[in-house]
């Protein structure tokens, strides 16, 4: 548990951090450090330079404007879980953040670090995909945004370029009549999600007008389930179960605790339960 030799640089601004990224090949950005440092201690990651962006207050905070909630990349899981703004507009994101690790992890870990690391068992990615969030990136050549559904590319791989910093995510607020839920099947060793199901349904006059389900932990990236069959129904248990059973992934991940087949099965069960919980909250 001793990392290899590395240099440490602390950035005072986003621009300085971008400059340090340019100057140092293979450098790694560190926010809360909760993914990077364990990898370094196991020597699975041996970056020559660590650029600490953890004190860039400009990247921290939660605010709502124009039907969308902006969450700065350095916002901690604890702040997200406790956010009144998110509770009002995107409660499922706060719910998922409250499932991450323990209180100490939530006090240090950040949403930007979490999604940039892109662990398949992470709680945040399926929620961002469900909500249609956009991820905002900045480089010396400007800024760009990418849809959460396109951001996660593969196991531990994202769309973040080598010269880019993840600055914030924009999360569309849930509309009236919408219920949402995140249900987690926790790994007894790591505390990560074996399966994490994020669901939302919108109900008007007793009928479903929109529904979504995204399941984490089953595939390398969050798996969206086509639950459009629910639209127009009264969201009966049978209709929900049928919709959730559409979960499919070509190459499910597995470990000694839970095989790929089993994860797909639990994904269907938890998808069903998350949809039912969302219905009950709508």
């Amino acid at each position: 548990m001793y990392p290899a030799q590395f240099d440490y640089r602390r950035a005072g601004s986003v621009d300085e951090a971008l400059g340090l990224l340019q100057e140092n090949e293979d450098a790694k950005l560190m926010a809360g450090g909760h993914s990077l440092i364990p990898m370094m201690k196991l020597r699975l990651a041996q970056p020559p330079v660590v650029i600490d962006i953890g004190r860039l207050d400009e990247l921290r905070g939660i605010s709502e404007a124009g039907g969308s909630v902006r969450v700065g990349s350095l916002t901690t899981h604890a702040d997200i879980a406790a956010s009144d703004v998110l509770a009002a507009h995107c409660p499922v994101l706060a719910e998922a953040a409250g499932h991450i690790g323990d209180a100490q992890v939530r006090n240090r870990g950040t949403i930007g670090g979490n999604i940039a690391h892109a662990d398949p068992g992470s709680d945040i990615p399926p929620v961002l995909v469900l909500l249609g969030a956009s991820v905002h990136l900045q480089s010396p050549s400007g800024t760009r945004s990418v849809a959460a559904g396109d951001f996660f590319q593969d196991l531990l791989m994202t769309d973040v370029g080598e010269d880019e910093i993840l600055t914030h995510v924009d999360v569309p607020a849930l509309g009236a009549g919408t219920g949402s839920a995140y249900l987690k099947f926790e790994h007894p060793a790591s505390g990560y999600a074996v399966v994490g199901a994020a669901a939302s349904v919108t109900v008007q006059d007793g009928r479903c007008t929109a529904a979504g389900l995204v399941v984490g932990g089953v595939g390398a990236v969050p798996t969206a389930v086509d639950v459009s069959s629910l639209v127009g129904t009264d969201l009966s248990d049978d209709a929900i179960a049928a919709a959730a059973s559409g979960l499919d992934t070509e190459d499910p991940i597995g470990d000694i605790f839970a095989s790929g087949d089993y994860r797909v099965h639990v994904g269907k069960v938890y998808g069903k339960r998350a949809l039912a919980a969302a219905r009950d909250r709508a």
Binding site: P188, A189, S190, D255, I256
Partner: peptide, 24 residues
């Protein structure tokens, strides 16, 4: 009874070698 298991694979590698995989 419920969680702990030291697992070696067929080549003798301890695949439950860290607390990410071995559940206390």
């Amino acid at each position: 009874a419920l969680w702990e298991n030291a697992v070696y694979d067929d080549s003798g590698q301890l695949v439950s070698g860290s607390l990410m995989d071995y559940a206390v």
